[in-house]
């Protein structure tokens, strides 16, 4: 999880990824950020993320991204 927060912070500086739970709904990250984030996550965690995984539910918080990574491993 710490590695995930570090990656997210490098992709989108200035966002409190440890505590925010509505990253998409509040517009803190955008679909354009998601492409950047997904690319880094696939590289760092060795998972295959597909278009079907690019849902707001999977990216609204660091925890939901972490759960997605665990599911895909």
């Amino acid at each position: 999880m710490e590695k995930l927060i570090q990656i997210l912070t490098e992709c989108c500086p200035g966002i409190d990824f440890a505590n925010e739970t509505a990253l998409i709904d509040d517009g803190l990250i955008e679909s354009l950020d998601i492409v950047t984030i997904v690319s880094e996550l696939m590289d760092a965690f060795g998972v295959d993320i597909t278009v079907d995984d690019l849902t707001p539910e999977n990216f609204n918080s660091a925890e939901s991204m972490w759960d997605m990574i665990q599911r895909l491993k």
Binding site: L32, I34, T36, S39, M42, D43, V51, L54
Partner: peptide, 11 residues
């Protein structure tokens, strides 16, 4: 989806 990819709005 590779580090450094440039993209516009994703469908």
């Amino acid at each position: 989806f590779r580090p450094g990819v440039l993209a516009n709005r994703t469908l």
